[in-house]
Amino acid sequence: MKKLLAIILGCILTGGFLSLPTLADTGGLSSLRGTTDLDSVPNAEEMKRVPKDRIAIERDYLHQPPVIPHQVRGYNVNLKGHKCLSCHSWKNYKKAGATKISLTHFDTRDGQQLSDVSPSRYFCDQCHVTQADAKPLVKSDFKSVDALTH
């Protein structure tokens, strides 16, 4: 009995050791991290830059939150102040030459209209993001509706 146990244990242990290198192997499968073995760190991608400033970027579907066409480094949004709204609020948009936030930004999630930006819209970067000049990671053949193509 004891002998049997020892043999089984021995098998498991050596088996475990033998299969270790293959565990780190990707099995020839190429994923987003390439074919680098799982136990090594692939080379980092080059840093992507956000272009400084460009004209508004076309939208792909109705109700898409438009992407941000400018850099936002150092634009703080907190209890004390809201840098984005110093250009995008209804009060300031004309002077800044910016798009004003749409009416939907004044609604609570229950559809109640408030007199100021709704708390659920306060943190713009939950929905609006900057763009980097990067190759898409996955191919997409999404086509926007006719009304949005130019």
Partner: peptide, 11 residues
């Protein structure tokens, strides 16, 4: 920044 609520040009 400090509290900007009543500063001109801020929201």
């Amino acid at each position: 920044l400090p509290d900007m609520s009543d500063v001109k040009g801020w929201h």
